[in-house]
Write a protein that binds this DNA or RNA. Sequence first.
DNA 1: GTTTTGACACCCG
DNA 2: TCGGGTGCCAAAA
Length: 97
Amino acid sequence: MFADLVYQVLRKVPRGKVTTYSAIARAIGKPKAARAVGNALNKNPYAPQVPCHRVIKNSGEVGGFAHGTKKKIQLLGREGVIVKNGRVGKEFIVKHL
DNA sequence: GTTTTGACACCCG
DNA sequence: TCGGGTGCCAAAA
């Protein structure tokens, strides 16, 4: 399924950087399936191998998180990504995989 | 009930 | 204003 594709694309994201749902959706060939990507990450069938916390909105907002949005920001900060006021530095966001 | 796929509404320019 | 893009959701199987 495309969840596997999402997983592969997501693992391409280097540590300390983040990506967007749209970027992943586009990478799998479904630019309109960004929501599906979110759900795929929500279920996260690939355990900690998939850094779903490394995926944020295209707007720079961390968006939502199944395990807690607050926790997600905490994780990102741990990765080296500076999250300020629920917003991630767009410099950390890689829109092109 | 759970899991997967997807078009639309809301937001920004 | 209108159009385009995004989204961790909702509907279908």
